[in-house]
Amino acid sequence: MNMNKVREDDDYSIVIFKPGTSPGEKRKGLFFFTVLTIIILAQAFYWLFANSVEPITWGMPFGMFTVVALILLEFATLAAMYWTETREDSNKGGAK
């Protein structure tokens, strides 16, 4: 691990990414972090935009449908994140 790089900085500052993480990986990490945070906030504040019964969609009141739709969106996001990560690993020649 690249210990020298850590030494140069303030030794006790917050470390979000492991030393040696590439800028591309950092960007990707931040992107998914932001998207998932938005999904969590949307789920917590769903009543701001979907606090109604009509239209009844997929047999559920609109509020319940929104909660379910957000769950599906979350699943898709997680799957995309997993997919990009494992694809990277196999490109590197299967990093363990």
Partner: peptide, 18 residues
Amino acid sequence: AASFFIMGYCALGLVPWW
């Protein structure tokens, strides 16, 4: 509708585990 909360948090609960 308060019960929707149970679904929402069950689905999201494991996300911080990443």
